[in-house]
Design a protein around this nucleic acid. Structure first.
Length: 424
RNA sequence: AGAGGAGUGGCAGAGUGGUCGAAUGCGGCAGUCUUGAAAACUGUUGUACCGCGAGGUACCGGGGGUUCGAAUCCCUCCUCCUCUGCCA
């Protein structure tokens, strides 16, 4: 979330930023926050004063008791009761206003960075880079939802039976290809200096708030209510939360982690004809990269992360493009996001396979993830993450783009991992 | 899952109702000494909020309670350890 001090000191800039995102009521939102914060300060001041007075009297009583002046102590005790009711009322008042302030802040998204284009929707995203050529498919080429049946490598019906829609089984060479991609992505990240972690895939409420899935995406996560745990929608959540309430030593920066996890998304209300097959699932596999940086370096890190993802796509010989997301299409917590999309020749459309974002201090403020500057003052760090990569749509593109009348050709870089060159 | 024990500052560890934000040791930082380093010695060393400042407030696993006053007593939740049981 945004820092109150930032909002107060850069009000105009913040409002402008929110408008770039399409937040209509930006002014009133910010005014309300400042108003509530001013009230908070006022009440805290009063509360602190009554407590100071009570503490003072309590000390006096202690002193008198020690000296054996019980009667005097009783007299002082009499003075405390009104203070007590007063401070209790102020305390309740304070916590309710603090809560209100927190809720307000939770509902303000991050401010887009200056290079984020204006725009309302996905149509306004800006293509900043394109790579590769559209493959010429043979006569009778098919979309992946047909191919997986022909070669019996992914089974949605079986998934329907055992779990439900959006939970496919991967079978035989399909399963093996999945595992090959995971290992390939992990190895590539390792070579790029990312430290691999295996994380829990259920997280508690605090972690959900830490990275911003809560309260923003409450309904999008699977919730194990018995234990109040959430299934992760992305490895970003457990990995970034490793650093919740941490003050990092500058000499240990940057932090770079990679983790492979299944991801779970309810995708409530986002189903339609355009999301057939592997295009949208409730459970999918993803290799995620996460970095923690000194504020000065976060944008060059963002660039590096994009380069890493693009390198993966190039090695997989996929046609792709990079989008600079516009203000209206960015995620709630992001300051700038680049999406990578691969082209599916059989579906004749672009599929998002990666989203790389810099959250600046937005997550760090919720996480209380900090470093010490030269004056030993604590300052917020910057967090970043990106998919490298999400598997299903990459798989869909590989199946569709590499299909031939003889079968599906496995990209060369994956062959050492699959142990086979063809699915046929 | 049952029984018992425990959670204190970066770490170790004292503190069982009153001046305790918390002894002491280690570690860290600054300085003295030294050509330099080590050792020794001296000082310093948690976080957040309010306040121009002086200063104030909160925090001893989390939350709640008792009390004029809680690290200390009570309730509750969480985590860890030991034993028993169960299990990949």
């Amino acid at each position: 979330m945004l820092e109150i001090a930032q909002i107060r000191n850069n009000k105009a800039k913040i409002i402008k930023g929110l408008k770039k995102r399409g937040v209509q009521e930006a002014e009133s939102m910010i005014e309300r926050v400042l108003e509530v914060d001013t009230k908070r300060k006022e009440i805290q001041g009063k509360h602190d004063n009554t407590l100071a007075e009570s503490n003072q009297l309590a000390k006096q009583i202690g002193q008198l008791m020690k000296e054996g002046k019980k009667d005097d102590a009783e007299i002082v005790k009499g003075k405390t009761s009104s203070l007590k009711t007063e401070s209790k009322a102020l305390g309740e008042n304070l916590s309710s206003i603090e809560n209100e302030l927190k809720q307000l802040l939770y509902n303000i998204p991050n401010i887009p960075n200056k290079d984020v284009p204006e725009g309302k929707s996905a149509n306004d995203n800006v293509v900043i880079h394109e790579y590769g050529k559209t493959p010429q498919l043979h006569e009778g080429a098919k979309p992946h939802w047909d191919l997986i049946k022909i070669y019996d490598i992914i089974d949605f019906d079986l998934g329907n039976k055992v779990s439900g829609a959006g939970f496919p089984f991967y079978k035989g060479k399909g399963a093996r290809l999945q595992r090959a991609m995971v290992n390939f992505f992990l190895d590539e990240a390792q070579s790029a200096g990312y430290n691999e972690v295996q994380t829990p895939i259920l997280i508690n409420e605090e972690s959900g708030y830490g990275t911003g899935q809560l309260p923003d995406k409450e309904g999008q996560m699977y919730h194990a209510t018995e234990d109040n745990l959430y299934l992760i929608p992305t490895a970003e959540v457990p990995i970034t939360n490793m650093y919740r309430d941490v003050i990092l030593d500058v000499k240990n920066l940057p932090v770079k982690h990679v983790g492979f996890t299944p991801c779970f998304r309810r995708e409530a209300g986002s189903w339609g004809a355009h999301v057939r097959g592997l295009n949208r699932l409730h459970q999918f596999d993803k290799v995620e990269i996460v970095q923690v940086h000194h504020p000065e370096n976060s944008y060059s890190a963002l660039k590096d992360m994009c380069q890493h993802v693009q390198g993966l796509l190039e090695k997989l010989e996929l046609q792709y493009r990079v989008l600079n997301l516009c203000g209206g299409d960015m995620g709630f917590t992001s300051a700038q996001t680049f999406d990578m999309e691969v082209y599916s020749a059989a579906q004749e459309k672009w599929l998002e396979v990666s989203s790389v974002s810099n959250f600046e201090t937005y997550q760090a403020n919720r996480l209380k993830l900090r470093y010490r500057d030269e004056d030993k003052k604590t300052q917020l760090l910057h967090t970043l993450n990106g998919s490298a990569l999400a598997l299903p749509r990459v798989l869909a593109a590989i199946l569709e783009n590499n299909q031939t009348p003889e079968g599906i050709k496995i990209p060369e870089v994956l062959v050492p991992y699959t142990g086979f060159e063809w699915i046929n």
